[in-house]
Design a protein around this nucleic acid. Sequence first.
DNA 1: GTCTATATCTCGATAGAC
DNA 2: GTCTATCGAGATATAGAC
Lengths: 246, 246
Amino acid sequence: MTSLFSRMVDQPSAHAAVASPPGPGLPRRLSTEQILRAAEAVFAAHGYAGATMAAIAERAGLPKANLHYYFRSKEQLYRAVLEDILATWLADADHWIVPERDPAEALAGYIRVKMRLSRARADASRIFAGEMLGGAAHVRDFLSIELRAHVERLDDTFRHWIAAGRMRPLPGKHLMFCIWAMTQSYADFSVQMQAVLGRAGTLEEQDFEDATRMVLQLVLGAVAVDGGSAAGRRDTPPGHQGTARA
Amino acid sequence: MTSLFSRMVDQPSAHAAVASPPGPGLPRRLSTEQILRAAEAVFAAHGYAGATMAAIAERAGLPKANLHYYFRSKEQLYRAVLEDILATWLADADHWIVPERDPAEALAGYIRVKMRLSRARADASRIFAGEMLGGAAHVRDFLSIELRAHVERLDDTFRHWIAAGRMRPLPGKHLMFCIWAMTQSYADFSVQMQAVLGRAGTLEEQDFEDATRMVLQLVLGAVAVDGGSAAGRRDTPPGHQGTARA
DNA sequence: GTCTATATCTCGATAGAC
DNA sequence: GTCTATCGAGATATAGAC
């Protein structure tokens, strides 16, 4: 949450004002949380350029000037929102995809968590997607340092499984790209799916269950070392399902 | 290209000025093509709100006012770009995914075409993705009418194959969502992949080949009715590969 | 048809009262 | 710390000469 990312920011002290408040931190923390939540919604809906400070202020129920009191500029507010998102981004994969697990169990657990995230935090996913579309100017270093190392680690785990004959040989990085693409698209492209499936305002619980089953079938089918791919069908990996963030 | 889409526009006559030019159409057509190409690049890079008419004009090598001569407003120009994209969007699936083909051959052919499109027309894919992120305000009707019918048709073909025992039972619509997600993400999220794979400016030919193989393995493995999934591995469906647009 | 110059408006950011 | 009023940059769009 504080400074997890090597150099997400160009300017010296990103939001030090938020990290070390000079007075009693409580009201400050309340206001900033309020602003960040409003900003996440507005940035997700309109993108960085399309979002206006006025719209964020209105949604937060505050006058415009207060935003500039807590965040020096629009860009800094945007970066703060992005940090919030990225901070929680990598934990799940590192929790599930570890050499000790069975490959099918690990991937199934990860996919279920990611699908649940697409539903519960769709706005966060959309902001990240918009950032990628725009060339990722604000998170370049995060991608090529943190994320790259992260994927390298996952790929090592895949190689380990493959060498042990527990998983069919696959390009691990592209496997991750595909899993991300499928799971996140149920957040990023949900309008499209709603239209195609004839849903009114949002996708339904049933849709996410169907989607999860589809993704599981695709991934587990390709990963399974033989015909008997019984794992990950219905069972919950022992004692971890509840731990993962919703 | 002209008015393929039921009601993409709210205002009465979308760009009738382009459809029926009053003078010799050649210079007009040249300028509009020039503008549309520049607009596609700029809208893709900055989104609708982030793109400026000045930037589009500069890229097209024309003064700003000329854009407003050919297109009444920024929004109308954007819609024209979107129409251009959507017009070529649906043809491939209807070409490949037809009941007469073998399911594995059909899906393999379609996936290869979509992956090639992600490379050759990445900007178009990104504009569409941005439009989805923003709530699809400009293409709502296209999604819920044309695209919905399109997917319904594809789903019928899947049901046909499943009933004939040529394909494993799968939710056809979600299968299409997943195929789109995976193939298009190699255009929309290519910055992310470049960073993770350590590529300089763009993804390389080899990356797209690896990606295509990965997607094929995922989809064909889940679709194949038995263990012997020999189809779609390397061979080209007879006499159609060359027909598909690059 | 093409371009220069400009009107009009919106947004980010700040000054300064409270 | 909080808010009102406002400045100035930059955007869309147009007027009008050529």
